[in-house]
């Protein structure tokens, strides 16, 4: 994904993934490693603990491509991932953050 220009990148359809995970030091490595080893760029990442902190929620903003279904299946296989939900790019979690990135 590094080879495509910024305008091309913005033209691609986006997907927002919402993951419920166990909150421990290795979780992020497990999740992003699935993407990085396939040269699949993650455009945005947000993580915060949920409730008492036993679990966390990870929000990922990714470009939609033909590998996305396989990516979601791989994420679902991770031991520390409890649930995966897919949302459209219109999901407000990243939209509301945009003001911090100006």
């Amino acid at each position: 994904m590094n080879t495509i220009s910024r305008t091309e990148n913005q033209a691609l359809a986006r997907t927002v993934l919402e993951l419920d995970v166990y909150n421990h030091p290795g979780v992020m490595s497990h999740v992003v490693g699935l993407f990085s080893r396939r040269a699949y760029n993650v455009e945005g990442i947000l993580v915060m603990p949920v409730g008492g902190g036993v679990t966390s929620r990870i929000w990922l903003l990714v470009n939609e491509d033909e590998r996305l279904d396989q990516m979601v299946k791989q994420v679902e296989k991770l031991e520390d991932v409890l649930a995966v939900r897919r949302h459209g790019a219109e999901h407000e979690v990243f939209v509301r953050l945009e003001e911090f990135f100006r």
Partner: peptide, 11 residues
């Protein structure tokens, strides 16, 4: 731990 993430089912 980091080295074995991509080659294990879990670690």
């Amino acid at each position: 731990y980091g080295l074995s993430i991509p080659i294990t089912k879990h670690n």
